[in-house]
Design a protein around this nucleic acid. Structure first.
Lengths: 147, 147
DNA sequence: CAAGATTGAACCCTCAATCTTA
DNA sequence: TAAGATTGAGGGTTCAATCTTG
């Protein structure tokens, strides 16, 4: 076993810094464009689009949490804020612990406004900068990180 | 001009999702290891290590902010929390608007504990998964995103 | 008890307004 | 006025403790 030094080398620093920059910028830029176009946050968009995709307008909170890969409490706090802003409603069907989440008219409207902005932003800020022969590099690293 | 569809294609979705996963996981994992080893957050570590590197224990708040690339108020809030936890002290030398930040004994100790954990975490979670001939791909994307 | 969900505290971050000192 | 810094509000996230219902 070779002992590794306690500090990163210049080469390691440079690569780590690049990945940190990439990570910080990528999500922020897309979220900012969604916010500007439809007045909702990136998290709001994730929730709204998942409910529409998987549940066709209504979905159990549990299924939603699993699809997003979020913690229970994170989703609960998020839905509380969204309910307050009238983007959706929550209701628990008689005598079960499960909660159903339903998009409101306002939520559907915001989603419709945000969707094209989302696609445009992802293309303009991210995809445009990744040449086809580099795509596999990102797919591989994400795959290793998600295990 | 070709009109782009309002939704991402399956191929676009896959790549965007990979970059999102990478972005969400990379920083979180390193921060979690720092937290576990020294009881400080990733932001705390960034602040402490910058002060030691650039200022040798003491640095002006302004210089620190520029080095980190953070907003004024973000740094102010962060330093307020760190001061409360006794990681550092702030003092303004007579009659100037500038503020000097100085590491406390406790801060130096936390930094010393966190540094090897940081290097190990970056290597184990990130660098290990990037073969040398792929490094340039990340450097290029980060460069484009930081402009 | 177990599973689904909520709550409160603490931390993190941004924006806009404000304070301070030259 | 301009530059450095702070503040308060509001959204976002995690953790641990708690509530609820079968």
């Amino acid at each position: 076993m070779t002992v590794q030094p306690e500090r990163l080398s210049a080469r390691e620093q440079t690569l780590w810094h690049a990945i940190k920059t990439l990570s910080e910028q990528a999500l922020i830029r897309v979220a900012a464009d969604i916010e500007a176009s439809a007045g909702i946050s990136g998290s709001d968009f994730s929730v709204l689009s998942r409910i529409e995709e998987l549940g066709n307008g209504e979905l159990s909170q549990h299924a939603l949490g699993r699809a997003l890969g979020w913690q229970r409490s994170r989703l609960s706090h998020q839905l509380t804020r969204m309910e307050k802003r009238q983007l959706l409603t929550r209701e628990s069907h008689s005598g079960t612990p499960a909660v159903w989440v339903r998009l409101s008219i306002h939520g559907l409207h915001a989603l419709a406004e945000a969707r094209p902005a989302h696609a445009t932003a992802v293309r303009a800020h991210i995809l445009r900068h990744v040449p086809p022969d580099h795509e596999v590099v990102f797919l591989e690293l994400a795959d290793r990180l998600s295990r």
